[in-house]
């Protein structure tokens, strides 16, 4: 099976606190902080979008490896907020990252698991021998409607992986589970998504994440205690914490990958930015269970083992996830709506 050759993430520096959003909508911030486990979220700057975020994440992944860009034969970008409706993000990234023009490329969509769908597709091309290395990116600048519960969590960030034959972590197996579940959707041309309220929990998130994790452990003959780390899709802090407990994982196994409480739900990057934070500190032999969830709905599970090459891997050539999380620029709700284009300007 293929392995992770390199990885990199990018988190915009602007942040807004749950208290600040609650203040505007007259809500009790303790309900959000205590109930959903969201304290703050990242906000893209007025000049940032999925292309710029993907480019920064991709550059960080390229910087950390000595593998030549010329060997990258595919680039797939998963997002639900691609800058263009028609004009692939992947095509702009080929030039922005200086990748060869002899390259397979496409944009993917599957709510919050489009990034992991991209990883699986690169794995297929690597394992079949069609390409030597490939890049998979998950990035989003998601929006929640003003006043909607999603406004506390919908945030921005991106993570890029270079997948190839010889890397720093083996992907032992991947498994996907898909059903037709209308928990969350956005119709073409609509600015904000709609969701099924409480319906997003049991039949959507928990059913798919738990099935993905359980089937993976059945197939691999593993138990929760066999893993050093576990990371799940995190629409808020509460859901993945509960899913981990239901599966039998302990806090020590999940805390390093649980980032939504501080940066919000980065959608297509949500689980993989947690995986990126885990890889920032992982050591040879560490085993990781990673499960992404996308509304609609489906899950992508990965069983990963870090190998000895991580010792000589140049992690410090690019900023780690925690390093980026710890450099916030706090903004108020007024600047937040300005940056997110929620103010109607003259001529609009």
């Amino acid at each position: 099976m293929s392995s992770i050759v390199s990885y990199g993430s990018y988190v915009p520096r602007y942040r807004i606190r749950a208290e600040e959003i609650a203040r505007v909508w007259g809500e009790d911030p303790e309900n959000i902080k205590g109930g959903l486990m969201i304290y703050s979220k990242s906000v893209p700057g007025p000049d940032e979008d999925v292309l710029t975020i993907s480019a920064e994440a991709g550059k960080n992944a390229i910087k950390r490896t000595d593998v030549s860009k010329k060997t990258i034969g595919a680039i797939f970008v998963g997002s639900e907020s691609h800058p263009y409706a028609v004009k692939p993000t992947a095509s702009i990234l080929v030039e922005a990252l200086g990748l060869p023009n002899d390259i397979h490329s496409a944009d993917y969509e599957f709510a919050c698991k489009a990034g992991t769908a991209a990883i699986q597709n690169v794995m297929g091309l690597v394992d079949s021998g069609m390409i030597e290395n490939g890049m998979a990116i998950g990035a989003d600048t998601s929006q929640g409607a003003p006043g909607d519960a999603l406004e506390y969590s919908a945030s921005a960030g991106g993570t890029a992986f270079i997948i190839g034959k010889k890397g720093i972590a083996e992907i032992n197996k991947t498994y996907s589970f898909t059903t037709d579940t209308p928990d969350f959707w956005r119709r073409e041309g609509e600015k904000y998504p709609s969701h099924g309220g409480r319906f997003t929990g049991e039949p959507a998130y928990f059913k798919h994440v738990l099935t993905g994790a359980k089937r993976m452990m059945e197939m691999q003959g593993t138990k929760p205690e066999d893993y050093d780390y576990a990371v799940f899709h995190q629409p808020n802090g509460k859901f993945p914490t509960r899913a981990a407990k239901m599966l039998g994982f302990k806090d020590e196994q999940v805390k390093d990958g649980l980032l939504t409480p501080y940066i919000g739900n980065t959608y297509s990057s949500s689980m993989i930015i947690g995986l990126s934070a885990i890889l920032d500190k992982a050591e040879p032999g560490d085993r990781i269970l990673a499960v992404a969830f996308g509304s609609g709905a489906g899950s992508d599970a990965f069983d990963i083992t870090v190998n000895d090459s991580i010792k000589s891997y140049k992690r410090d050539r690019a900023p780690g996830v925690m390093e980026q999380i710890n450099r916030p620029i706090w903004i108020d709700y007024a600047n937040y709506v300005k940056y997110r284009g929620k103010i109607i300007m003259r001529g609009e």
Binding site: D47, E48, D49, L51, T52, E56, P83, A96, E348
Partner: peptide
């Protein structure tokens, strides 16, 4: 860093 520099109105190209 790569950023959006300008956009040609609502329907035009995005210049990075």
């Amino acid at each position: 860093t790569l950023r959006k520099v300008r956009t040609e109105g609502k329907s035009g190209i995005i210049q990075y």
